[in-house]
Design a protein around this nucleic acid. Sequence first.
DNA 1: CCTGATTTTTAGATCAGTCTAATAAATTCC
DNA 2: GGAATTTATTAGACTGATCTAAAAATCAGG
Lengths: 258, 258
Amino acid sequence: MKGNPVAAESQNQATVSSTVEDYLKVVLKIEDMKQRASTSRVARHLDVADASVTDMLRKLKKAGLLEYKPYYGATLTRKGRRMAVRILRRHRLLEMFLHQVLGYGWEQVHQEAERLEHAVSDLFISRIDALLDFPVQDPHGETIPDARGFRQVEDDLCLAEAEPGSYRVRKVTNSDPEFLAYLDKVGLRPATRLSLQEKAPFQGPLKLLPESGREPVYLGLEACRSIFVLPLKDRPGDSTSAPDGPAPREAGFLASRG
Amino acid sequence: MKGNPVAAESQNQATVSSTVEDYLKVVLKIEDMKQRASTSRVARHLDVADASVTDMLRKLKKAGLLEYKPYYGATLTRKGRRMAVRILRRHRLLEMFLHQVLGYGWEQVHQEAERLEHAVSDLFISRIDALLDFPVQDPHGETIPDARGFRQVEDDLCLAEAEPGSYRVRKVTNSDPEFLAYLDKVGLRPATRLSLQEKAPFQGPLKLLPESGREPVYLGLEACRSIFVLPLKDRPGDSTSAPDGPAPREAGFLASRG
DNA sequence: CCTGATTTTTAGATCAGTCTAATAAATTCC
DNA sequence: GGAATTTATTAGACTGATCTAAAAATCAGG
């Protein structure tokens, strides 16, 4: 590596190194989970030492990309959020592209997109966006921010917290290939309908019945934390006014951080 | 940048940093031009200081990727050549992909491919290879090494050295967008037929008549050095046994360095 | 409000890749 | 074949991103 930034930008936006992009992405992810972006949490996500994160957060603060309170953690500024959302958009568009155009499995797209998101130009992104006819979700069901940085509100529900009933899988927020391959095998992917039949007590597994298979699937609570669902009107054939039409849009980097 | 190699490889081949890939690529390019890969020549191609090249060549020698004689320069080893040809293949396939699938102009593909060639996986490459139906040339007319590293022999002729007569443009070995856009404007691209009408003396321009336009084009000698052509059987309509069928193949990294 | 555990920061070092300035080798030219 | 010029190498330093180990701040509980 040359010491230089690698992301290609024709924009006025200062270009940053792919490392910086990764830090911003992680802080955004943590904030989206309504958690505090503490040094150690960021370090865990990035698999680097805490000390490295302290250093970097101070640099990012100096660059105006986030606020940083020692012994507390980081919060993205408007500028930092804009950049983070931009990477998120690239990542998810790339995933969709790999899946739809190059035939990648949903368990394969993440790793490749992690590298490409830092390397492709804005032109590349806008071309695949058009080629895919402006998709709003990636292969995991995650919503794709639009070109202006606006993000759809996420009105889904964590399966780990759901009560027995009928649901539709909205997204899976786990990029471990093994895990995704397993979900695929048992017939759980975005848009799959399922009924949550029972929740074993004491952090026990959930008994699920995906529409596709007739065998029930027992899934550990921890695994269920990365599956998000939408409750289904209980009549299984009823698709009118289903909760998956065009969801309302809300300011992404503009307003979502309260 | 993390200090790590960035190129993704599922292979056993040791992965190297994108910087190393760039050095190897440049040495290959210079060797292909039948020149000595001297420190300064490599430095010029990469736009870095000579001292940096000296350092790096010693490192690459230690890694077994090239031979390096102080005060002489570098020659690729089999291993180094294999890696360099692999990057070349990636670069050209990516260019073709950008052109054919994403609608990039031939003057736009180089810059993007320069970044992507270090970032995409082997899977990506094999998928676009298939998607493009295993192309043998890139948008500039350069041949694409095959997956095993074999390269077509280049039997073309530099326009700067050509005698008046009829030719077909084979390739353009210059990636300057301005230049390529100009050639495009005057109707000169790979596969274009043209007649070289006269060569002005004293390094003067060449008078060309591309098949498309009726206006002659005057092109400086220096510009002509990056245009390569194949002589045409003089009957303009005669396409039987034209010299552009499947060209013979020859060992790429295996034999081409004598 | 003090102690112990946890989290975070500091201090100092390393690594890859680069630079400039100074020196040394090779080449060229009379 | 020796002086001048060109080309290449060494020496020393910098930058970005990382690490480990030690010190300091915060937090949790009695």
